[in-house]
Design a binder for these strands. Structure first.
Length: 230
DNA sequence: ATGACGATTTACT
DNA sequence: GTAAATCGTCATA
């Protein structure tokens, strides 16, 4: 199949990598040996110490974001909102805290395992208690990895994977398989999602997605192209 | 020690 | 549209 992405592939600026990752396949191997995979359809670029929306803004370097300063091809996984994990791939040059957030995949294999991971955790199975049928209808295939938090949940990715090197491939349970380049015309871009008060950085069109994919997150105001294209 | 804050998601008015 | 869930992390004291 396609070959694993090389160090060179990741050694570029965030915007270029965000585009290059679209269409690539992310493969996650569980401890059980199950292989879950999906096509990357949505990414966001975080440009580094000058990017007010970045965890590394103003050279901020703490135990949490330490892996942002690692070699290109390193995984940066963080925990937020008390319940979600988000996964990034570090790029740029070594010691440069530049990264791309993985926001959505179109599931390819291991959908049953993904559905299992996404299944809500019942607080306590109380016999006799009226089972409040969680109004949640069964998840459709295309929404299993829709959104950065859901993506990590479906693929069982957490801080244990933070700092993993996607290139060496030694004992790595996550890998990126390149694919033939995507037609530039099929890529849309727009402002990043979920940012706080970051001034003008809020509007920079650093979010990229594959036009037409149902798995792309964010508000879908129209039908054909998902979020407002730019 | 304390408090404010999330690169989110989901449910609800 | 608004709000709640939920807790690790970081800056401040």
């Amino acid at each position: 199949m396609p070959r694993r992405a090389t160090r060179r592939f990741y050694s570029t600026d965030a915007e270029s990598l965000a585009r290059a990752l679209l269409g690539a396949t992310l493969v996650r191997t569980l401890d059980t040996g199950e292989r879950l995979s999906g096509m990357i359809v949505e990414t966001e670029a975080y440009l580094g110490i000058g990017d007010r929306a970045s965890h590394a803004y103003n050279s901020r370097r703490t135990p949490r974001n330490e892996s942002m300063y690692a070699r290109p091809g390193t995984l940066y996984v963080y925990f937020t909102y008390g319940m979600h994990h988000c996964a990034n791939i570090v790029c740029g040059r070594p010691d440069e805290p530049v990264a791309v957030l993985l926001r959505a995949l179109e599931p390819l294999t291991g959908l049953d395992a993904m559905r299992r991971m996404r299944a809500p955790v019942i607080p306590s199975e109380r016999p006799g208690a009226s089972m409040k049928t969680s109004s949640s209808r069964p998840l459709r295939d295309w929404e299993l990895c829709r959104g950065p938090g859901n993506l990590c949940r479906a693929l069982a990715m957490d801080r244990a994977l933070d700092g993993a090197d996607l290139v060496s491939g030694v004992g790595v349970s996550v890998e990126i398989a390149r694919r033939s380049p995507i037609e530039p015309a099929s890529i849309s871009r727009g402002p990043r999602i979920g940012l706080g008060d970051v001034g003008t950085w809020k509007d920079r069109p650093l979010r990229f997605w594959l036009r037409g994919s149902p798995s792309v997150s964010g508000p879908r105001l129209d039908g054909a192209d998902g979020p407002r294209s730019v």
